[in-house]
Nucleic acid binder design. Sequence first.
DNA 1: TGGGTGACCATAG
DNA 2: ACTATGGCCACCC
Length: 114
Amino acid sequence: MKKDNDFFDNVYSVVRLIPKGRASSYGAIAKYLGSARGARMVGWAMNNSHAQSENVPAHRVVNRVGLLSGKNTFPSPFQMQALLEEEGIMVKDDQIENFDSVFWDPNTELDIER
DNA sequence: TGGGTGACCATAG
DNA sequence: ACTATGGCCACCC
């Protein structure tokens, strides 16, 4: 039988593939799954990521402006920023600095490049 | 069953 | 420039 949460599983897989010191965006992940099936679902999957036994580096996932949108949903809002800084990502005012540099797009990095 | 919500993104005024 | 609204699709009540 088919799994309804196939979408979630896909998201977790991609998030785990995010290299250290890099960050990705919800829309990029959603698009990588096939289309922007409502980037909101990606965030929601993250919200349920706590249900996953595997460690999902949700802290490496931010919105398109590099803002730590989900820090509020973390066990401790400071944990997300702390983890990011731990990996060398500079965070200022709940926003990633040089986001252009740390941005990791699965469509560009993983895929295809022909 | 139907309606509301959501860690978003894009376009229009 | 900023604010407002629509769209996307899965989950909860």
